[in-house]
């Protein structure tokens, strides 16, 4: 996977992970991939809903040692 940018939003509570992700994805071009690291458990559902609303695609997500990784392809 060709990651364009990584956003470390670990330790942040809602709504910061989404707000930061929104700002980061605004700097990307269509088709580019943003990697996001979060520890907020609410993010699992929030990122699915947020991506759907913006037509972005979550290519992959995984959880390792309490950190959730999202790989989001910009619409």
């Amino acid at each position: 996977m060709n990651i364009t940018q990584t956003l470390d939003a670990k330790g942040f509570a809602c709504p910061m992970p989404i707000v930061r992700t929104k700002k980061a994805i605004d700097t990307l071009n269509s088709g580019e991939i943003l990697e996001v690291l979060v520890t907020d458990k609410g993010a699992i559902n929030d990122f699915a809903a947020w991506s759907k609303a913006g037509n972005h695609t979550i290519l992959e997500q995984k959880e390792e040692d309490g950190v959730i990784y999202f790989y989001i392809q910009k619409a």
Binding site: C14, P15, I18, V19, K22, D46, A49, W50, A53, G54
Partner: peptide, 11 residues
């Protein structure tokens, strides 16, 4: 403000 910023971040 949580709802407002979350909504604004969702365009």
């Amino acid at each position: 403000f949580n709802i407002a910023t979350a909504a604004a971040a969702t365009d």
